[in-house]
Design a protein around this nucleic acid. Sequence first.
DNA 1: CGCACGACTGAACGCCCGGTTAGTGTGCTG
DNA 2: CAGCACACTAACCGGGCGTTCAGTCGTGCG
Lengths: 227, 227
Amino acid sequence: MRSATDPRDDLTARARIRDAAVARFGRDGFGVSLRAIAQEAGVSAPLVLHHFGSKDRLRAECDAHVLATIASHKEGAVGPSGPDHLLVDLAQVESFAPLVAYVLRSVQHGGELARTFFDAFVADAEEYLHAGVAAGTVRPSRDEHARARFLAQQAMGGLLVALTLEPVDDPAQLGARLRAHMDAVALPALELYTEGLMTDRRMLDAYLMYVTDPPGGTPDPDPTPSS
Amino acid sequence: MRSATDPRDDLTARARIRDAAVARFGRDGFGVSLRAIAQEAGVSAPLVLHHFGSKDRLRAECDAHVLATIASHKEGAVGPSGPDHLLVDLAQVESFAPLVAYVLRSVQHGGELARTFFDAFVADAEEYLHAGVAAGTVRPSRDEHARARFLAQQAMGGLLVALTLEPVDDPAQLGARLRAHMDAVALPALELYTEGLMTDRRMLDAYLMYVTDPPGGTPDPDPTPSS
DNA sequence: CGCACGACTGAACGCCCGGTTAGTGTGCTG
DNA sequence: CAGCACACTAACCGGGCGTTCAGTCGTGCG
């Protein structure tokens, strides 16, 4: 019983299965079989069901566990470089790499956790940008929320595409791969962020003119004919 | 025989199966069953194998078909807004929406076609940026290729994340969804592209200083010990 | 001690998968 | 008309999946 191993209590088979599931889900995707998870945890497949009821509930528990773990670590030490680096920094710590892989899989696959994570990223980005604007290091935007969402989406997506096109087999190398991605991205990103891309304001001004005064007015707002 | 239906020749059951496979793969992912594809094409499952040999070869043929179709259309009319808009513009045409969905699925899943497509995107972006630099509308970069890759990766990834987090059920709505994504992204993107993000050059200059003169020198270039 | 209980497992079930086989209909060809 | 090539299908196969079941083992408790 748990009374005998009181301090560990969560390092028992149940937790081992959960950790193995996180690792396998992250490495091979959510289609991985229960038997593979069981083997990774060193137990039999039915024991997984015995503890978690079903594969779906196991997945849900993994979601909650990953969410809670990362959230608690986010509080502990705020990243030096904004939300984009949180996952990258976490992945450098070997023990956290599986969690990061799990998060990336989630975002690749979609679903509840992915949206939760992404919303948190956007919120972090917005907060970070707001601090920059207040400190005078970041230009204000005409729509701060849209900008935060845009930047988070682009950064997350770019990372995901890079990892998808050149997948990392060994989760121990995930940290190095993420670091390499940041290195490859650093120069163009900093260039873009400080110098922009365009040499003049024509396109932006044209767009601003367009949204405030659409050329076609409001054409046929309810195009439902009589038939 | 094909001599009887000479002009159609490619609209026979084989092509119908291929199109059904493209549609299903794009809508439900590559895990979709052969039976579902067969049902969509209105034939029996073994007929799919009869024509294509195996699921893998069917997938390969879909890859080639999608690649060829989009490539031929790309030649026909070069997009007015660079490579990012090619898929978006194509998806507006209802008949092309399944192909676009297939491409996005490919990039989400990884693999050969994904890399081929992505490399083509990068090449298009590089060409487009180069033209802009030559015309004086786009600032030059210290690493043109890295910038093109960066922008393509971010744009593609951002689109993918947006669609993954809020998936589109009906392929007929894909065009509208992509348009909505471009609308949501237009303002922050144009702001970033024309005005940048930073108010000063400190971070960029610090980075440039760092890469040309790393603080740690060249630490242990070949860390292979004697053992 | 005896007993109940939870952790745990081997075997098996039902299902669906990709793929195979054996055969049917059909239309062209000689 | 006979022969034949081809598109096409019903039935089936082995295998892997999530899940269930019956039972064993170890252990704390009356």
